[in-house]
Amino acid sequence: ELKKVVALYDYMPMNANDLQLRKGDEYFILEESNLPWWRARDKNGQEGYIPSNYVTEAE
Rank of each mutant, 00 (worst) to 15 (best):
E1Q: 06
E1P: 03
E1H: 04
L2E: 06
L2C: 04
L2R: 08
K3Q: 03
K3F: 10
V5D: 00
V5A: 05
V5E: 01
V6H: 05
V6L: 09
A7K: 00
A7G: 02
L8Q: 07
L8G: 03
L8T: 11
Y9H: 15
Y9K: 15
Y9C: 13
Y9L: 15
Y9F: 14
D10N: 07
M12E: 14
M12A: 14
M12N: 13
M12C: 15
P13Y: 01
P13T: 03
M14G: 14
N15G: 15
A16C: 09
N17I: 04
N17F: 11
D18W: 08
D18L: 08
L19M: 06
Q20H: 08
L21G: 00
L21V: 08
R22W: 07
R22I: 11
R22Q: 12
K23Q: 08
K23M: 05
K23V: 08
G24A: 03
G24L: 02
G24T: 02
G24Q: 03
D25E: 14
D25V: 11
D25P: 00
E26D: 09
E26L: 12
E26I: 12
E26P: 10
Y27Q: 00
F28A: 09
L30C: 04
L30F: 10
L30H: 05
L30N: 03
L30Y: 09
E31G: 09
E31I: 06
E31D: 09
E31L: 06
E32G: 10
E32R: 10
S33R: 08
S33M: 11
S33G: 11
S33D: 07
S33A: 14
N34C: 15
N34T: 14
N34F: 15
L35T: 09
L35W: 12
L35I: 13
P36S: 12
P36E: 11
W37Q: 14
W37F: 12
W38M: 14
W38C: 11
W38G: 04
W38D: 05
R39P: 04
R39W: 10
A40G: 10
A40F: 00
A40T: 02
A40I: 03
R41I: 05
D42N: 07
D42T: 08
D42P: 00
K43G: 13
K43M: 14
N44I: 15
N44M: 09
G45M: 06
G45H: 06
Q46K: 15
Q46D: 08
Q46H: 15
G48R: 01
G48Y: 00
I50H: 02
P51H: 10
P51R: 08
P51Q: 06
N53C: 05
N53S: 13
N53E: 12
N53R: 11
Y54H: 12
Y54V: 04
Y54T: 03
Y54Q: 05
Y54P: 00
V55I: 09
V55P: 00
V55N: 01
V55L: 03
T56V: 14
T56K: 14
T56W: 10
T56I: 04
E57F: 11
E57I: 05
E57D: 08
E59P: 11
E59C: 09
E59I: 12
E59W: 07
